[in-house]
């Protein structure tokens, strides 16, 4: 009933992603990453990619898989410490990297999704992040002018979604996914549970389906934990 945005799986979802495009990929660390689409991109060997994502995964999982296969030309991220291969490619000059403060990264995604060409933020004022950027003072405080991202595709991961593309996220796997979903010219969503339109409570929807173009139910989520920290029972 209504708009049906369902595709069969990751391969169909990424069918028109070609070499050289700019991709946004949701997730924080390995939490909330679009595992199926990343694997599909690796399988297809699409290269020369510019990837916008908060982190670069670990060496053998997440975006790290794309880096291993040298499919990434440029990475735009806030922290890449978990990935030794990334740090190596960065220091050697093989990989172009733009390190962006996490809040700036999040807000540049948000700006794109909210139709705002630019935002002002104080993050990075007085540091190398400010080099070459316009600075403006508001109420006695200095802000940097930062521009909205312009991705060709946004690939996000959600907990639940419906056939019209409405999305609900879980706990801290929400992170960058909602803003990236809004920012994509074409937004692909992989979800753990796909239901017919009408089954999600509209009050619970985090990302309305207007932002989502393709949706599918993902399979075999590994949901790897980077730092398994526990406390003892008394």
């Amino acid at each position: 009933m209504g708009l049906n945005k369902v595709v069969t799986g990751a391969d169909e979802a990424i069918h028109d992603i070609s070499s050289g495009v700019t991709l946004m990929l949701g997730g924080f660390g390995l939490c909330g990453i679009p595992e199926n689409c990343i694997q599909a991109l690796v399988r297809k060997g699409i290269d020369n990619l510019t990837c916008i994502s908060n982190n670069a995964g670990v060496d053998d999982f997440g975006i790290g898989l794309l880096l291993q296969k040298k499919q990434v030309k440029k990475m735009i991220a806030s922290y890449v410490g978990e990935n030794a291969e990334f740090e190596r490619q960065l220091l050697s000059g093989e990989l172009e990297v733009e390190l962006v403060p996490q809040g700036t990264l999040a807000t540049r995604c948000m700006a794109a999704g909210y139709g705002m060409p630019a935002i002002y933020t104080p993050a990075g004022y007085g540091t190398e992040v400010a080099e070459g950027k316009e600075i403006r003072e508001f109420n006695g405080k200095n802000y940097l002018l930062e521009f909205a991202f312009n991705p060709d595709f946004a690939i996000v991961k959600a907990w639940k979604g419906d056939t019209q593309g409405n999305l609900i996220f879980k706990e801290t796997s929400r992170n960058f996914n909602p803003m990236m979903a809004m920012a994509g010219k074409v937004t692909i969503a992989e979800v753990e549970e796909l239901v017919p339109a009408g089954q999600l409570d509209p009050n619970q929807v985090h990302t309305p389906g207007i932002y989502v173009h393709r949706i599918f139910q993902g399979v075999n989520y590994e949901k790897r934990i980077e730092q398994r920290t526990v406390r003892k029972r008394n």
């Binding site: 924080f28 660390g29 996490q102 801290t172 960058f176 920290t229 526990v230």
Partner: peptide, 30 residues
């Protein structure tokens, strides 16, 4: 969390598994 209760969707900024306390709220990075 206690051992065995780790939730891969519930981590802190250091990517460690955590829990929540009463009155908590989840929201996006923006």
């Amino acid at each position: 969390p206690f051992e065995g209760d780790e939730d891969p969707d519930l981590i802190n900024a250091g990517k460690q598994t955590i829990t929540t306390v009463p009155g908590s709220a989840f929201f996006d990075s923006a």
